[in-house]
């Protein structure tokens, strides 16, 4: 399964993705109007790489995410993970992919089943995805990684603070030791200390474990701190794909310029920090 682990093969590779949206018709015999949500998306992620995906609301970020997570199928184009094709299929057929590529949802706290304990929540994907390893050790390790106490193992989500719930959701993904993490707005709605923790955690994972990240945000200001490379999605197409520093210095498109300007106005300090070469060396805010 892990045969293609050579440095050359990209971890995840998307070529020529198209996605159209058919607005639902009120009557079945009426023609439906189709709109192109994504056009000709090409994207490749190398092991350990940290890539940002930014764009205003409605640019197609969520749709692209659904395609990359194999939740929806593309109308044209292919996605491969280490040379293997990825497309929506049964839960069983996608287990290998779920072990490689995991997802941190936008509002992680609400993604925890209120009826499960923290231990069950983190164990669920280990069991369901047939991870052959000592599950208890994996759970302890994941909790340790996100900086949560063992005493929380029996707690239910309702008893957790917002920051703790966030970290449980990340621990659930981390316990699988994925090669790539897709994070949807991982910093929005977090208070500053928790933000700092999450950023530090991402730094550690990419430096120590070689985990790759695709970080999706409508806000460009988080990118310099988190990503070496940033893609700008506009109206369903990738209009920029460059190192974050270069993007901030010489934005090519008007839309990129607008996003950069907005980022400067909003978070002047963060945005001026250049993209870190060795992320963990930089102090956290």
């Amino acid at each position: 399964m892990h045969g293609l682990a050579s440095g050359e093969a990209p971890l995840l590779c998307a070529t020529g993705l198209y996605k159209h949206l058919h607005s639902p018709s009120l009557a079945f015999w009426r023609a439906r109007t189709a709109r192109t949500i994504l056009r000709d998306i090409n994207l490749s992620i190398q092991p350990g790489e940290r890539i940002g995906l930014a764009g205003v609301s409605g640019a197609g970020k969520t749709t692209l995410l659904n395609l990359l997570l194999a939740l929806k199928g593309a109308d044209a184009g292919t996605i491969t993970c280490q040379g293997r094709a990825v497309r929506p299929a049964s839960v069983r057929a996608l287990r290998w992919y779920r072990r490689q590529v995991q997802y941190i949802p936008q509002d992680p706290a609400s993604s925890l089943d209120p009826r499960m304990s923290v231990r069950d929540l983190i164990r669920e994907p280990l069991v369901r995805l047939n991870v052959v390893d000592n599950h208890t050790r994996r759970i302890d390790e994941a909790l340790d990684r996100v900086g949560l106490d063992q005493t929380l193992l029996r707690a239910r989500p309702a008893a957790l603070s917002g920051g703790q719930a966030q970290r449980v959701a990340i621990a659930r993904a981390v316990a699988l030791r994925p090669r790539l993490l897709l994070a949807d707005e991982p910093l929005s709605g977090l208070d500053l200390p928790v933000r700092a923790r999450v950023m530090q955690l991402f730094d550690d994972m990419s430096c120590l474990d070689g985990t790759a990240f695709l970080i999706i945000s409508h806000d460009l200001s988080v990118m310099p701190r988190l990503c070496e490379r940033t893609l700008i999605l506009h109206d369903g197409a990738i209009i920029e794909d460059r190192p974050t520093t270069a993007l901030f210095e010489t934005p090519k498109h008007d839309h990129t310029r607008a996003l950069v300007r907005a980022a400067y106005q909003d978070h002047a300090i963060t945005a001026m920090v250049p993209a870190p070469a060795a992320p963990s060396l930089y102090p956290v805010l």
Partner: peptide, 26 residues
């Protein structure tokens, strides 16, 4: 439509388990 059920495909939760462990108890 709830977030903790929408994420179940990512966790490898199959249909039967989704029904018995996530949907029915609610």
């Amino acid at each position: 439509g709830q977030a903790h059920v929408r994420i179940t495909p990512m966790l490898g939760v199959g249909r039967l388990r989704l029904l018995t462990r996530y949907v029915l108890p609610a």
